[in-house]
Write a protein that binds this DNA or RNA. Structure first.
Lengths: 344, 344
DNA sequence: TGCTTACGTGTAATCGATTCCATGGAATCG
DNA sequence: CGATTCCATGGAATCGATTACACGTAAGCA
């Protein structure tokens, strides 16, 4: 067992534990002499400071928590990696939690983090309570506890919490414009779950982009998925059987896109000539596909870094600006002339 | 601020802090009366126990650490998710760290975990030191500190640490047998970095499988990558220019496979008829590909769960059996008759 | 009834660091 | 030269829980 404490170090160095502490945390002024002795002793004994004791007294843990939906979604794993690396650069560790799109798991994780007295929280909020349509009690608790928190990716408009998010209207405007130019009129949307603000934002931006391009939005062309592969597959089948025979489709995230593309491959649908496809999230698999899939992408590294920066601002009692990143549209061979133009 | 401590709860409940503690940790016998009062008071005041104080005294943190290479690799994010969920079910939180294939980052993370006195460590070891070819000093330190540790996925044969790993010989034997039946003779291997035991194991099993199928192994048909997409792309180009014109290839992980398949798509190579492809790691993108890619897959959920179970055994001072999972080969349309049989 | 056992509780020690406060000596200043 | 300031240091309090120990009361048993 590693029973070597700061007292052992102090003893070996011939100083008091107070001095040893001062040297080891590089805090206040210490003489070169004792600095040398303490450092030598610490190294000698293999001293590893006890973070519990340290943070019990100093009320800081140098730890933040990041709550996402699911690490297995490349979108969130990218975000998690960016946050973790940025936090590390600032000398903080990161607890990563998966909510699995479930408010109960979210709250359990947040409670554990509150108990561990993390210095701050970066949260992708899971949406409102099913029943009372209010932010979960835990959120209120965090806010009243004064623990610094920022939202990333999604937000809860009901709460006044600084957020870092992405705006897709610009990219969707471009995308729809491109589709219209190619003669597409019936454009379907495979969306995400309504409880996610990002899903709502993308859907709204899609409708707006249709209007801006003088196309009419049609609720029948909207499929409600849940951001997971299986629902993308369901959406793909739904589209194949759709009476309006849409000639183009926009898919709200990468897992759904992969699920959908798998179904279309099995059904022998030729992406591009027969069906134009645009997917959110520029993951490598989209470029591997034949033809490569046009995408609307977020700069997740930048968002992750911005979230950490915003959190640091809150921790320093500043109020960060709400930050919104603009998504990018990348045109690729998955877009082609509409098979039969119904006339403009 | 959340300044409500157990003393406040005790005061409000009209008992001593000792009794309050006993009630709240459900530890020793307490009367129904005080149980009721304490629980009411705790709820009333919104008491959140301070985990620092608790673990300082009790020397347990209910926290484990998981060190992987990179969460963005779906292989590891699957593993991380499985470990996290299993640990959660056992009432423990999980610290996830990325080593980014770098011994220094690995050691930094491990040091932080040691300082935080985690109850145990699940580690995908990053390999030996470049220079002295020995396990890093930090590994030795962990072992001598007595912190329970298990390896998962990869191992360091130099160290006597329980491990959970996967064996690919069986699946590779099947896979090569299938390729031979289809007339393939020159089979290339896009491998991983030699410092990873999994990369070595897969390469060795590949050679063995060739021999077992009476094919000769040829060092010129082995490309050394680093498990990342870019090196898969490099490997794909290397293969296209290879004088032996291999007709089949096995790729050591999913990111490399995606990188390679992107290059082949761009080069107009028809996977299947022109080049048979088998990839390690059955990720969704492999099934989305046209044609779907034959895979050799590990049951990462099972491995993650087994790692937690093994760690719990070590924490309970038992010695777990080293555990090895058998990978599965799934034949798919990416395998086809060799374009030109050079005779048997 | 008298003795033992078990149980619920409170007091106080404890975990291992940080940090307030007091002190003594050196340095600085008028 | 005397007074003041500054600096390095040690002693002891502190953070907030758990837990060893002691004690009083009620229950069990002969």
């Amino acid at each position: 067992m590693n029973a070597v404490t700061i007292k052992d170090v102090a003893l070996a160095a011939g100083v008091s534990s107070a001095t040893a502490s001062r040297v080891l945390s590089g805090h206040s002024a210490t003489s070169a002499d004792s600095r040398e002795k303490v450092e030598a002793a610490a190294k000698n004994l293999g001293f590893v400071p006890n973070a519990q004791a340290r943070s019990l007294r100093s009320t800081k843990t140098d730890t933040i928590a990041l709550l996402i939906s699911d690490v297995r979604n490349p979108y969130f794993s990218d975000l998690a990696h960016a946050v973790e690396q940025q936090a590390l650069a600032a000398g903080m560790m990161t607890f990563i939690g998966n909510a699995n799109e479930d408010t109960a798991q979210q709250d359990q994780f947040l409670a554990a983090m509150l108990s561990r007295r993390v210095d701050g929280l970066i949260v992708v909020p899971q949406g409102l309570d099913e029943e009372d349509e209010r932010p979960s009690e835990m959120m209120q608790r965090i806010i009243s506890s004064g623990t610094p928190m920022v939202f990333v990716d999604r937000t809860l408009p009901e709460l006044n919490v600084p957020s870092v998010s992405a705006s897709s209207s610009e990219a969707l405007g471009e995308a729809i414009g491109e589709l219209k130019k190619l003669g597409h009129r019936n454009i379907a949307f495979l969306g995400g779950p309504a409880h996610a603000s990002t899903a709502r934002e993308r859907h709204r931006a899609f409708d707006d982009a249709l209007l801006a391009n003088a196309l009419e939005s049609n609720a029948n062309l909207h499929f409600a998925g849940d951001f997971q592969a299986e629902s993308g597959a369901d959406g793909a089948r739904w589209l194949l059987n759709h009476p309006l025979k849409p000639t183009a489709v926009i898919i709200a995230d990468a897992p759904m896109a992969i699920g959908a593309l798998t179904v279309w491959r099995e059904a022998g649908v030729r992406v591009g000539p027969e069906l134009s496809v645009i997917a959110f999230d520029e993951v490598d698999a989209m470029l591997m596909h034949h033809p490569p899939i046009a995408t609307i992408s977020h700069d997740l590294r930048a968002m992750g870094r911005a979230a950490v920066t915003a959190l640091q601002a809150v921790m320093g009692s500043n109020e960060p600006e709400p930050q919104e990143f603009i998504s990018q549209f990348a045109n690729r061979a998955s877009l082609a002339q509409a098979p039969e133009t119904t006339g403009a």
